[in-house]
Design a protein around this nucleic acid. Structure first.
Length: 194
DNA sequence: GTTCTAGAAC
DNA sequence: GTTCTAGAAC
């Protein structure tokens, strides 16, 4: 009896649909316009970590075609605007994960300090500091040129297992805590010193 | 994507 | 002994 769950209330759903839920929650929205919504990442991997999502239902990079170029340019512009508003003096990157865990296309807008307690694993680190993180500009150029995005899933998996390496000076570190202590010494994730 | 935790690594 | 990683989650 307890196994019947055809109730009208819809539950939280599978974890991978979490972004859609967050997108629709007004309290999560940092910014919104006719084409896209910006939210804070629920588990930020740096001091500033936002996600920009198109309102149009696009599941992943593989679903993009030449018609989406203007939308992607708009999403990147929005991301830059949000980053600028957050902190003009911090370096940010704007890009997509090669193989994201969460459904619905999302641009990561992330400051390059990577100073966050939510950054805990090798996968976290490598997903933002190796080629697993694909800059928005590259995605847009490839879309303009080829009309679609090709991702090599198996080589992406390999990237996540790479040895830990500082994104600024390339020093190799053996553990996450050692890496975190190391990057804290770099104060160069700022654009300028005034 | 996260949480939890066994056991590897130190 | 503690720290840290990595794999299951029904």
């Amino acid at each position: 009896m307890s196994s019947s769950n055809s109730a009208k209330k819809k539950g939280p759903g599978h974890w991978s649909t979490g972004l859609l839920t967050s997108m629709e929650d007004p309290e999560m929205r940092v910014d919104e316009d006719d084409q896209c919504v910006t939210i804070k990442d629920k588990y930020p991997k740096a001091r500033y970590h936002f996600l920009v999502l198109p309102k149009e239902k696009i599941n992943s990079l593989k679903n993009l075609n030449g018609d989406n170029v203007e939308l992607l340019k708009h999403i990147q512009f929005k991301g830059q605007e949000i980053a600028d508003k957050a902190d003009k003096h911090l370096l940010f990157r704007f890009g997509y994960h090669a193989v994201p865990s969460m459904g619905h296309l999302h641009l990561h807008v992330i400051s390059q300090d990577f100073n966050s307690p939510c950054l805990k694993t090798k996968k976290h680190w490598n997903s933002f500091t190796t080629e697993y993180f694909i800059d928005s500009e590259r995605i847009i150029k490839q879309l303009e040129k080829k009309g679609r995005i090709e991702i090599d899933t198996s080589s992406s998996e390999t990237l996540l297992k790479k040895d830990l390496q500082c994104h600024i000076c390339s020093k190799k570190l053996s553990t996450i805590p050692a890496l975190k202590s190391h990057i804290a010494l770099h104060c160069v994730s700022r654009k300028k010193s005034t």
